[in-house]
Structures are given as structure tokens and as C-alpha cells.
Design a protein around this nucleic acid. Structure first.
Lengths: 183, 183
DNA sequence: ATTCCCAGGTCAGTTTCTGACATTTTTTCT
DNA sequence: AGAAAAAATGTCAGAAACTGACCTGGGAAT
């Protein structure tokens, strides 16, 4: 087990036990059996330990989009389908996702970081869309799609009744039924 | 001049002169003629000095929305009009806004904080919309409206050719023409 | 005038984060 | 295998961000 993973595991455990603010980087490092200094070599700051920096999700959604080019289809629809395509990835780890989200919601710093991740996601999706669509249109669609995902994700976490994919489609349909065509 | 304002002025000056990361809270406090301690009494952290906490903008947009209830009108349209209604507020201080934005774009921490402000904005708009519309629909419209504002704002900063209001309507029309009706 | 209040000062301490350099561990090359 | 190179981690010193506890002076209220 690499030290990075050990640190992530240790952090997750301690954040759950005593909360984010009450656990010090010292403690995380100790529990992981390494030095505080190597924590800061692996992660740019304390909050970083909770976030994937590699934008896995963005890559996957972008891949789906580039694999399903279809000039007939509206960009937002395509982007939302991209998110649907990765949604089952979350279904298996509902527990972990919920726990992680609880930690994040407990602290403004973490919320901010989560939002920044959203920006990276937008950039990925924008980029993959812009191979087929106008640049502004791509960005707008990407932003809307990420917001739809965000809402669906929140609803999915609040209640287990629907799958994430279903929530995504539900929000998308809410949009289609209520926003489109005229004022 | 209250110490809070002196600190804000000092911070703005120093951030411009030497950049955000290179200026210390010490220096800001010194230039403002107060102690480091009182800086942290006025602002929760270093970045806080750049942000209005009172959500002025959200209040104004929300006020417009509640003043212009119209069951015929789609919520997104109404929300966008809310943003249009406050857009002239920015026109007068383009210089300041640009300078401030340059500082913010120079540092991830500041970008994150700006994004959190966006969430507060979303909450305000959602709240004002939900007096007339379904709760989920209100949130979705608020999110989309804020994204439209965000894009328009960026374009407005990049070039002075169009007013912010014009950019807003341009982005909104891009949405109307390209997203609506069918897949 | 006396009390009270409160913005600000003082100080000591914790925590986060970085730079510089030493040491260990792993990989690569022959 | 064994030397050389490279990557990871340790050590240490220190700056900067932030907090808690307590003190102080001067203005507002009664």
C-alpha cells in the first residue's frame, strides 16, 4: 500500500471519528505511519486528501461524449447522457459517498474545494463537446449538464428510492417540460 | 474610516502591487494602521477581505423577482431578467471589477471562495423563485440563471464591446435557440 | 459622573505549509 | 549481482495563518 493511499485511509477514518477541523495533519501522518512532511508532498493542502485530482469523472464523461457524436442531438442531451453513463459507478459505493459527503458538508473549506472540482468537470465536458458544437454553446451545455448532475446527485443522496441515473433523467425531464419553448 | 474599510483598501492596494500570495496579513494590517489580530476579527481568513459577505447582489436579484411575479413567464426567463436588472450596477465600475477579477483569477483559493459566493447567490434566487414555482424547478432555474450570468460576466470582462445586459441576453438567446424543443 | 460596552491591542500558542538538505529505498543499466 | 541513477521519505528550521484569553481606553447611555 502506497503512502498516498495510507494517508487517504487514515484521513477518512479520523475525519469521521473526530471531524475535519479537529484532526490535525500530524495525526493523519502518524496514523499512516509517515511524516507530516510527506503528507504535504502528496497533497497540496489538508483538504486535498479528500479529493481526486485526476478528474476521473470528467475523463469518463468526455470519453462518452466523443464516442457518441451525433449532429442531430442537442449538446445538453448528449452531455446528460454522458453523466448517465457513469452514474452506475456510484451505485456500488453509496455508503462511502454518503460518508464523504457528510464530511464535506461539515466544512466550508471542503465545500469550496468541491466546487472547484466542479469547474474542472465543466472544462472537461466543454472541451469534449466543442469538437462538435460551437464553443460558447459547448460551455453553456457543459455548465447546465453539471448543474443537472449536481441536483440529481443531491437528490440521490437524500433518498435511495431512485437510482442516480433515474434522478438524472428526472431532473432533465423537469428541465425539458418546464423551460423549453417560449417565455 | 472604519478599520474594516481601511483593511479592505490596504489589501486591495497590496494585492495589486505584489500579488495575493506575496502579501502577508501583517503587511495589510500595518498599512491599515491596525494589528494583525483585528484583521482576523473583521475577516474570517485572509481571502475573506476581498468578498462581500452580505450578498448584496442576491438580495437585489431576489427583490426583482418577487416584484415581477408573472405566472405566465418561465422561471429561467424571470431569473435572467433579474440579473439584467442589476447589470448596470457593474457598468460604472468596470475598472475596479476587472482589477478585482484579475486578483481572483491569480489564485485558486480566491477562485474557490468566489464559487462559494455563487452558491449563496443560487440560494437567494432559488428562494425568491420558489414563492411562485415548484421547489425543484426553482432551484434548477436559479442554477441555470447563475451559470448564464457567469458566462455573460466573463464575456463582458473579456471585451468591452457589449454591455453586461447585452451579453446576458445574448447568452440567454444562445440557450433559447439551441437547447429548446426536442433532442 | 459612573457604569458599561466594545473595538482594538497584547501575547502566547497551535496548525498549516515550505525550503533545504540528508538518508533511505527502488529502479535501471550493464 | 552490483553500481549508478532516480524517486520517495525523513529531518529540521521557519514563515505565515489563525485562535483563545485577557487587558485597555474611550465613547454612549442612564
Amino acid at each position: 500500500m502506497k503512502s498516498k493511499e495510507k494517508l487517504q485511509a487514515a484521513a477518512a477514518q479520523l475525519f469521521m471519528e473526530k471531524g475535519y477541523v479537529n484532526t490535525t495533519v500530524q495525526e493523519i501522518a502518524n496514523l499512516a505511519g509517515v511524516t507530516e512532511r510527506t503528507f504535504f508532498r502528496q497533497f497540496k493542502d489538508k483538504s486535498d486528501v479528500l479529493f481526486d485530482t485526476n478528474n476521473d469523472m470528467g475523463q469518463r464523461v468526455a470519453a462518452f461524449i466523443t464516442d457518441h457524436v451525433d449532429v442531430e442531438k442537442k449538446p445538453l442531451k448528449l452531455a446528460v447522457e454522458g453523466f448517465v453513463s457513469i452514474s452506475e459507478f456510484f451505485e456500488g459505493s453509496r455508503e462511502r459517498v454518503l460518508a464523504r459527503n457528510q464530511i464535506i458538508q461539515s466544512n466550508p473549506d471542503l465545500q469550496e474545494r468541491e466546487l472547484l472540482k466542479g469547474q474542472v468537470l465543466i472544462a472537461s465536458v466543454t472541451n469534449s463537446l466543442s469538437a462538435q458544437y460551437d464553443s460558447d454553446l459547448s460551455e453553456l451545455a457543459a455548465r447546465f449538464a453539471v448543474e443537472i448532475f449536481h441536483m440529481a446527485f443531491m437528490k440521490w443522496m437524500k433518498s435511495a428510492e431512485k437510482s442516480l441515473a433515474e434522478q438524472l433523467l428526472a431532473v432533465y425531464e423537469l428541465y425539458e417540460n418546464s423551460f423549453c419553448c417560449g417565455d
